[in-house]
Design a protein around this nucleic acid. Structure first.
Length: 474
RNA sequence: GGCCCGUUGGUGAAGUGGCUUAACACACAUGCCUUUCACGCAUGCAUUCACGGGUUCGAAUCCCGUACGGGUCACCA
């Protein structure tokens, strides 16, 4: 059996939203499931959209996600180059081969002419298809035009009747009438290939066995198959995957902010958690398990279980998955995803490393992503705390003032500032003020932190420091 | 507009003709636990699978139609 080879083929835009990433993950898992190769190919045939540093950005993202590239621009490989702009001679060669075989033709139609046709089609409310104006030019006419310096493109010659069909691993059989297929452009007038053409040539030349991509290509796949047929090449297995939508039900886009992997990463989401979550979006395992390591995913991933319908990216579920991973984190890792955010938000110059570490660890079970540490710990950094209506209401209950003043004097008496002694102070307050449970803890918690929820009270008080606590109890 | 695809609870989803009076998870609600909140644990949350017909002894599962949503129809990928 042929070695499985999949490819991730982004255009270098310097941006990757989670939908793209998910496709990359699927491609990677399918390859690795069968001990195959995962190839990175850069599709930069649109020279107007190039972005500097985009290739490093892609490597960076995949590295963070623990997705290993077997062949690509920065890797060795026998099928390179892996950047399409460095392969233009190949596309030209194959395009002209098709012309010789009579499967493609030169087209000298101008933008203006096409624009006019398009407008007409639009007015008549019919789909625009190139009319084949240049299909039957004679050899002499072509040579003449080229000699005159007329610009040309090369177009694929489509059959006008019959039906093309193919089998998609996710969508099943897809049938398209040939008369609906346009004589699409293979080679642009600037000599660069279109995506449609470069893709087919490269996938074949790079021995790609499984083509995994967004379902926006479902309809154009018959055109690609016609190309494979023209050359007599073996067609790959197609796996089209549905879209990932934002919470508004719309396609993810740059505008949707948090849809970018890098944004999530910068907010302190863990790549392995993001991967774990994304795989479960539009795919499900046979079991009820939901938390998987990359190796487990490789073992169990079956593309046939990819869903046909689009799925909504749900940050709440991601938060749950991410929180799950945070709970298992080592101290230094936890610090890594939280400290930068603390530094950015607060002045830590008079805090010791021990204090910061204690703080972060106290909140380990309380945050879903790194940056959340900021909002949840602001009680340690602000001068005055303000109570919301719920807190105020609770504090208006009878006897609260007494509890607070008893506790304040207990705190005053502590000489050795330890969690244990603080706990003792609380216990003493219980005795002396004659309150227990909620009526004991809640007033202190509210007075000291301004909140009704939070981690262990003695630890919180310890971190706040004696002076601050006494001030707040006043 | 033509063509293609989709539609199971607020969200992700299982389910491929009888085991489903529809799993599991997130979210939500309630209770238990912890001398407080949270964590954790437990329970509840779709009499029903967009809607309408049909096939069948039997349908979320098959067929037809309607509605809604998305994709596609570029010298963009």
């Amino acid at each position: 059996m042929k070695k499985v080879r999949t490819r991730f083929a982004p255009s270098p835009t310097g941006f990757m939203h989670v939908g793209n990433l998910r496709t990359a993950i699927f491609e990677y898992l399918i390859a690795k499931h069968d001990s195959g190769d995962f190839i990175l190919r850069i599709e930069d045939t649109d020279q107007t959209r190039k972005v500097d540093g985009a290739i490093d950005f892609i490597y960076n993202t995949l590295n963070l996600c623990n997705i290993h590239i077997d062949e690509g621009p920065n890797n060795k490989g026998e099928f390179g180059p892996y950047i399409q702009s460095e392969r233009v001679h190949l596309y030209k060669e194959y395009a002209h081969k098709l012309v010789e075989m009579g499967k493609a033709y030169y087209c000298f139609c101008t933008e203006e002419r096409l624009e006019k046709l398009r407008k007409e089609a639009d007015e008549n409310n019919v789909a625009f298809l190139y009319d084949g104006h240049c299909k039957n030019l004679t050899k002499e006419e072509i040579e003449e035009k080229i000699k005159n310096g007329e610009k040309y493109v090369i177009r694929q010659k489509m059959p006008k009747e019959g039906i093309s069909s193919y089998e998609d691993l996710v969508y099943g059989e897809i049938k398209v009438e040939n008369k609906l297929l346009e004589d699409q452009i293979l080679l642009k007038s600037d000599g660069y290939p279109t995506y449609n053409f470069a893709n087919v040539i490269d996938d074949h030349l790079m021995n790609i066995t499984h083509v995994i991509r967004g379902n926006e290509y479902v309809m154009s796949t018959p055109k690609y198959n016609l190309l494979y047929d023209a050359f007599g090449w073996e067609k790959p297995t197609y796996i089209h995957v549905s879209m990932v939508l934002g919470s508004d039900g719309q396609k993810l886009s740059k505008r949707n902010g948090d849809a970018s992997f890098m944004d999530l990463y910068n907010d302190g989401y863990l790549p392995e958690a993001v991967i774990n979550y994304l795989v479960m979006l539009g795919w499900s395992p046979e079991t009820n398990d939901e938390i998987f390591t990359m190796n487990e995913l490789i073992k169990i991933f079956d593309p046939k279980r990819i869903s046909k319908s689009p799925s909504v990216f749900d940050i709440k579920k991601l938060n749950w998955v991410n929180a799950h991973y945070i709970k298992k984190l080592e101290s230094d890792k936890l610090l890594e995803i939280t400290l930068p955010h603390l530094k950015e938000a607060y002045d830590l110059s008079n805090k010791t490393d021990e204090w910061i570490s204690e703080l972060v660890n106290l909140y380990k079970d309380h945050i879903s992503y790194g940056k959340e540490i900021v909002e949840v710990t602001d009680l340690f950094f602000k001068e005055n705390i303000e109570l919301d209506s719920e807190c105020t209401e609770f504090m208006s209950a009878e006897g609260i003032d007494n509890t607070i003043s008893v506790f304040a004097s207990e705190i005053e008496n502590i000489t050795d500032w330890t969690v244990e002694n603080i706990n003792t102070a609380i216990m003493n307050t219980k005795e002396k003020a004659g309150v227990k449970g909620k009526m004991l803890f809640m007033p202190i918690r509210i007075k000291v932190s301004g909140q009704m929820h939070g981690p262990e009270l003695p630890n919180t008080i310890h971190l706040l420091g004696k002076e601050t606590v006494l001030n707040r109890l006043k």
